Amino acid sequence: MPPLAVAPATTGDLEQARQLFKALADPVRLEVVQALGGGERCVCELSQGLGLAQSRLSFHLKVMREAGLIEAREQGRWVYYRLRPAALEQLQGWLGAVAAGCGAPAAACCP
C-alpha cells in the first residue's frame, strides 16, 4: 500500500505544520493573528484591542513565538509583535499540496 502522505514532506515539515496548527487552534490566538494581519502591534495595543489581561496575552504570545508564527522586537520598554510571513507561506504551501491531491480517487485495495 502506498504511503498516505500527499506530498513529499519531511518529518520536520510535518512537525512545523503541527506546531503551527496547534498555535492556531485556540480562539484567542486566532484573534491575535487577525489583529496582526494589519501589521505590527505593540503588546499594549493588543491587550487593549483584544480585551485581555497582559499576563493572559503573554502566555498566548509565547506559544505563538515558540511555534514560529510570530516574532517580536523590543523598542524601549515596549515589545512589538508581527506575524512571520515565512511561517504563513510554509503553512499555505503545505495546505496547497494537500488540496492538490485531495480529489484523487482511491486505488483499488482488494484484488
Rank of each mutant, 00 (worst) to 15 (best):
P85E: 05
L24P: 02
E45Q: 14
E40M: 08
S55N: 11
Q34P: 01
A67M: 01
R41H: 06
A107L: 12
P111V: 13
C110L: 12
L30W: 02
A97L: 08
K62I: 01
K62L: 06
C42H: 14
A7I: 07
G38V: 01
A104K: 09
Q92A: 12
V63H: 12
W94C: 00
A72Y: 05
R18G: 13
A5D: 10
V28A: 12
Q48D: 10
G12W: 03
A53R: 11
G39R: 15
V33Q: 08
V32E: 00
A108L: 06
E66N: 15
L83D: 05
L36S: 03
G39E: 05
K22E: 11
C44G: 07
L88H: 06
K22A: 15
P27H: 04
G68Q: 01
W94I: 06
C42G: 11
L95K: 11
G49C: 03
R29T: 09
Q75Y: 06
V28F: 06
L52V: 04
E15K: 13
V28S: 12
Q16M: 13
V79E: 11
V33H: 10
R41A: 07
E15T: 14
Q90D: 13
Q90C: 05
M1A: 10
A67L: 03
K22V: 07
T10D: 09
S47N: 03
F21Y: 09
A53H: 10
Q34E: 09
A86V: 09
A7N: 10
Q16G: 02
L36Y: 02
A23H: 02
P111R: 15
L83Q: 11
G37L: 05
G37E: 04
G39T: 08
R82N: 10
C109H: 10
G51T: 06
G103D: 11
C42R: 14
A53P: 01
P85Y: 02
R65N: 08
P105T: 02
